[in-house]
């Protein structure tokens, strides 16, 4: 059964006074356990698509089912819980919370799940160790390099054992060495933990870490490419 199912998704928004049709009828279904890349030139609607997949944005038209639930019918609390339990996010700008240290940042999603004290700390620590940051637990954002910040963000995304990780240009702000590191972590999460990963990127080499690439153009799926290299 498909984990995600998009059916004829449209998204319009106003940019100033100009109406932008960001998505013009996207239909796709993504199986549990896959590693998907979305590519396309800027303005092709790939970030909009990712936001809709992550329930951060709502489609103007069309239906979206995730884990057998119709997203349109969920209220704010249910959507928040869905994001909390099923989806981990990784952003291009890392988006760590500046007042908190690495460990506290990773604990955040667990707090919203109501996990208490010691168990929460242990889980968060384990996640940070898994991304190779066992010695950086109490560092703050300003004391970490870009690659390290992104690894903290990834630890924060998978600490709660989500079904799905959504990554928006995860290596966009990193050098090639750090990018490689991030991609190997993603592959690992996908293969070992069976977490579905969907990433948006415009770098071919990064996209090819996935097993399947959706190419977007002008708000529509242009073509689908299977990656053979694996």
């Amino acid at each position: 059964m498909a984990l995600l199912e998009l059916n004829d998704i449209h998204k319009n928004y106003l940019n100033g006074n100009v109406k932008v049709n960001a998505l013009k009828g996207v239909s796709l279904s993504i199986e549990d356990g896959s590693f998907v890349s979305i590519m396309g030139p800027s303005g092709s609607g790939k970030s909009t698509l990712l936001n809709i997949l992550g329930c951060l944005d709502t489609p103007s038209r069309g239906s979206y089912r995730i884990n057998d639930q119709n997203v349109e019918k969920l209220n704010d609390a249910a959507l928040s819980d869905l994001r909390n339990k099923f989806i981990g996010f990784v952003f291009q700008q890392f988006h760590l919370i500046s007042g908190l240290n690495a460990l506290e940042n990773v604990e955040l999603p667990l707090i919203y799940q109501g996990v208490t004290g010691k168990a929460r700390k242990e889980k968060a620590q384990a996640a940070l160790e898994a991304v190779g940051l066992g010695d950086r637990l109490y560092h703050r954002q300003s004391q970490l390099s870009g690659g390290e910040q992104q690894r903290v963000a990834i630890a924060r995304a998978f600490v709660k054992n989500p079904k799905l990780i959504l990554a928006d240009e995860p290596t966009g702000a990193l050098d090639s060495k750090a990018s490689e590191n991030i991609m190997s972590i993603f592959k690992n999460l996908n293969e070992e933990k069976k977490i579905t990963i969907i990433q948006v990127t415009h770098e071919k080499s990064i996209a090819e870490c996935g097993k399947i690439i959706y190419h977007l153009l002008d708000g529509e799926i242009n073509y689908i490419e299977e990656v053979q290299a694996h």
Binding site: L56, D76, A77, R83, H95, I97, Y112, Q113
Partner: peptide, 16 residues
Amino acid sequence: TSEIGVRRALGARQTD
């Protein structure tokens, strides 16, 4: 605002 967005993505509800 951006922190609010991140927290929302991580599962904070409007009431939080």
